[in-house]
Amino acid sequence: MIRTALPAAALLLGLAGCAASPPLASGLPAGMSRSLELRDTPFFPQEEFQCGPAALATVLGASGVLVEPGALAPQVYLPRRHGSLQAELIGATRRHGRLAYVLPGTGDALLAELADGRPVLLLQNLGVKQIPIWHYAVLVGYDTDRNIAVLRSGRRARKEVRWQHFARSWDRAGRWAMTTIAPGVIPRQAEPARYLDAVAGIEAAGDRKAAATSYDAAIARWPGEGLAWLGRGNVAYAEGDRAGAADAYARSVTLVPGMGAARSSLAQVLADAGCIDEARRQLELAAAHAAGTAMSATVEETRKQLDAAAPTGPGQCSLPGRRWPD
């Protein structure tokens, strides 16, 4: 009877993996080498249930931050869940001065990061959709001719897995993957929105220096990204640099006139600088642009604030002689 059991079990285990996963060779993007392995990637064998800290230590080490899994566990491990959450791996990455760049869920994105020299931390579901077994591993290489993925996984420093098998386990886990990036470095194939999301995260975590360096790099690469200028303005504001903040917000508003967040922030820094008339004008423009959008309540709130807090009257503006965007 065991003969019928095997196909049945295989069917059950394979249910969630029905999405076609072609062999590596058939989908290799043009210009990608046929095999690649980041052999210098460090390895930390995991303790019981601690694949999160071990995998994170691996990618952080590869990006130049030497930290032991034992030191990361108190920052990411959830004892009752016997595991670590994605959000907390991202948070811990920020605490160690690195950006957590979450990749698009495509095999090409994984390979491109490897080609750019970064091992990829990813989530796998080693079980089935209905009964998931979540596991973090680090992709360090692939070989098209042998059709394998090479992983740092659990207690195995070098684990070879058939590519389709690996791709399905990643697919069942929602295709989540990230790399850790030093401030100022931008992945060659990076999407501006994803990169700025990563920078905004480290800004929110309070690492202003890393955020400033990264926003500057983003502005150098994508000068037309309003969000990068908003972020640069926010860092400048947090450091007490009103003129720098106002200029950056103004650039953001010039690029994206309808960005309520940038208008609101510009109005605020103008008010701080005593340029009340211009602050009010910017808020009116913000209100006009934000009408009917998710920002309208925020802009209204800022206006109330300004009405309540700011004195009226001209003459005290510490940012004179500038032209602010309409």
Binding site: G201, L227, A262, Q305
Partner: peptide
């Protein structure tokens, strides 16, 4: 009050 964090804006 009027400053909107970048992450919040996103």
């Amino acid at each position: 009050a009027g400053i909107v964090g970048t992450a919040d804006a996103i």
